[in-house]
Amino acid sequence: MSFDKKPYFGILVFPGTNCETDCFHVLKNILGARCKYVWHKESQVEDINAIVIPGGFSYGDYLRSGAVAKFSPIMSFVRKFASKGGLVIGICNGFQILLEESLLPGAMLRNNTLKFICRYSHLKVTDTDNPFTSGYKSGEIIRMPIRHNEGNYYIDDNGLLEIKENNQVILKYCDSSGKEDASSNPNGSIENIAGICNKKRNIFGLMPHPEACCEKILGSDDGKTIFESMVNNII
């Protein structure tokens, strides 16, 4: 791979997005990838290999998390980009936007604790046959921070059956031994679901913040593998 052929990430920025620089830092300084910010009013982005929709509070999340962002011009580009097979990852608020935009199935409810939750959580990688978690071992237990108000994933019974049949569930909340139960479920998500992909497996949404755990000094570098997996699958 020649130097200028490094994978190129577009990081979307909506008013109220606040994890864009965290993603930029990881992609550029830790992975050595190329990346640029993409303002929500843009409708066309050249040359990029993958899209990151970072976390934050787009439009303050005053109505519903992610509800307003989906009307931005950039979202029709995201739709087009994804339909051609481009990789899209939505983290936290980015996941909520993907759900609101119906690029991923289901919806987010308020945490059943009715409180914002910020802490490290254990997660089980339940699927590795996708471009986002291919670098993990199947069933691997990892640690990532969760930081959200509305991360209580909901999907109706038929939808749940479908995403399970298609192995679209990628991450699940668990405890350090891998047990998935109510006590290791931080927010009430159905079946402890923390991250899912679409049927075509090129769109990934997750509530935990992989970009916040890519360096040992921050307490964990378990999140790095997600971005590495993406880089490896772009080549």
Binding site: C19, H25, G55, C118, E215, L218
Partner: peptide
């Protein structure tokens, strides 16, 4: 208290 505060955004918090 602090679990209700996002204390990790900006990814610089070296001691929680």
């Amino acid at each position: 208290v602090w679990e209700q505060y996002d204390h990790m955004v900006q990814t610089n918090t070296a001691v929680l």
